[in-house]
Amino acid sequence: MIKKIITFILEILCSILLFSLVLIFIISSKVLNKDYILSTLNKNDYYNLLYTDLIEKTESNLIELDLDNETVKSLFDFNKVKQDVNSLIEGIYNNKNIVIDTSSILNKIDSIIDKRFKDNNRIPTEEENKNINELKLNVKNIYESEIMIHKNMIPKIQKIVSLINNIIPVIEIVLIVIIVVLLLVISLINNGVHIVKPLLTSGFLLIFMYILFKSKFMNILLLSDGFNKALIAVFKDIFKSIIIYGIILIILAISLNILFKENIKK
């Protein structure tokens, strides 16, 4: 009786740890993988959507200049936008300093305004110069916030990513060791290999997680269209991996059951 209770507790514990290990592995292999993130952004049209957002927001702020859409578009180079986003991602994952250069954009605005004053045959007043500087600062801030979303959060995110990158492998190794030890103890107590139930249980837990949580993550609406689309794509991939690993664990468990003839009364 005591043997059964101890086995039950250890099997439950082992299942929870195995489930956690698989989950951590799935999430870290996606979210902490810089190449995966860059490819997700590409596949989900993030750069185009960001560029469109950028044009729209800048157009609204430059409305007093009465610029047509083509002129506003000419302020921003799509390839530079893409490059800046990629530099941001690189900077976050490699803990490097991130610099977003807006000088080319501001120079273009200067030329437009200079030409406008020349066409009107006058020079800007002191107040107009002050307003021009404010306008340029607004455009600079728009560009930086579109690329970086929250500029002040970037150093914190870099620290967190760096910390997680260092901790995850340690956590995974510790979990593997504990799981192996638990399985050995269970097997010793029961005089035979006892791996099937923890594998099956963690497989079922992954499937439950997929069923209970997937729909909650598919309607998220955060920040911009591009960010949202990419975020939902990441969640879709994570949940896809969860169900696949769940099924793999169940199949593996059944195979091992057959191999080790676990629970089969002779």
Partner: peptide, 22 residues
Amino acid sequence: VLFMKAIITNLIIAFIYSLLIV
């Protein structure tokens, strides 16, 4: 038959374990 019984028993027990955990 014993194989199948063992597999099904393990499946049922594991399903109950996972429900319990949830």
